[in-house]
Nucleic acid binder design. Sequence first.
DNA 1: CTTAGTGCAAACCATTTGCATCTCG
DNA 2: CGAGATGCAAATGGTTTGCACTAAG
Lengths: 150, 150
Amino acid sequence: MNIPQPALLQQVKERLHAEGGRLTEQRRLIVEVLENHPDHPTAEQIYLRARESDETLHLSTVYRTLRWLEEEGFISPRWFEDERRQERFDMGMEGSQDHHHFRCRECNQIIEFSEPLVEQIKAIFMAQYGGKVDNATLILYGVCEKCRAG
Amino acid sequence: MNIPQPALLQQVKERLHAEGGRLTEQRRLIVEVLENHPDHPTAEQIYLRARESDETLHLSTVYRTLRWLEEEGFISPRWFEDERRQERFDMGMEGSQDHHHFRCRECNQIIEFSEPLVEQIKAIFMAQYGGKVDNATLILYGVCEKCRAG
DNA sequence: CTTAGTGCAAACCATTTGCATCTCG
DNA sequence: CGAGATGCAAATGGTTTGCACTAAG
């Protein structure tokens, strides 16, 4: 299939080393899956994909690794309204610019986009209400072009 | 943009009548709690407040009523990132204009605000990616003025 | 060797559902 | 009286955790 990109894996390796953590086979696999499938998978989807390479991998290990990646700022969890309690994982890295999401309620596709007006909204809010806004999540819901046409 | 709304209870009464539903004591209580506490309570908070007037009220009844109110467009569920799985209920009525939220991560206060730029973002997205955007949820996270000062 | 990490099973917990009973209209 | 609601208990399902064992460095 796809040749794994060393970008995320390399960063993870370095962070683990700095913290006295260990790059296990399981973690390597999970990170590879994330790199090769930037389509906001659920924990279970990551689990199933990684299991194709390691039959013994357990879902709880996937969760533990995802939580660690989240704490380290490598990924972000996302929730979409039609999926109430299920979380999806976003490769967005620490320090990278905010990006936002459109979710098609027919094909469930997620489109990422950046939108400078959101910065402006933060500024307007702060001017009006005081306080400090650190980050913003914006999700648009609708029907994508393809589903409208089809 | 303030369109005076008849009290929620009155609207609920009419809708129930139109559908052959019944205005039970439990539903009346739950709707009253929602009207008197527009602070985005959780199901359990609504339950506890309503129970002060009716010891026998059960949490499942609260959930069933909330789901009905949601289907009828009287309230909307909202999720905030630091509470992963818990939902909060928003009195926003059907047909009322989109409103958005700021959440203080110290005092957990929620501030509602409207922001016309969001309409503009929807239009920009549609122009760029095609498709149709129906609605948008925007949540700002940060520290409110009071908590910053304190 | 040492201890971080894993597999597994059990726990968690907000929410949902099946069913016998009650009650609103 | 009869359909619609409720109380209760049990189920659900994504996520988390305790523990004994395994393996990375």
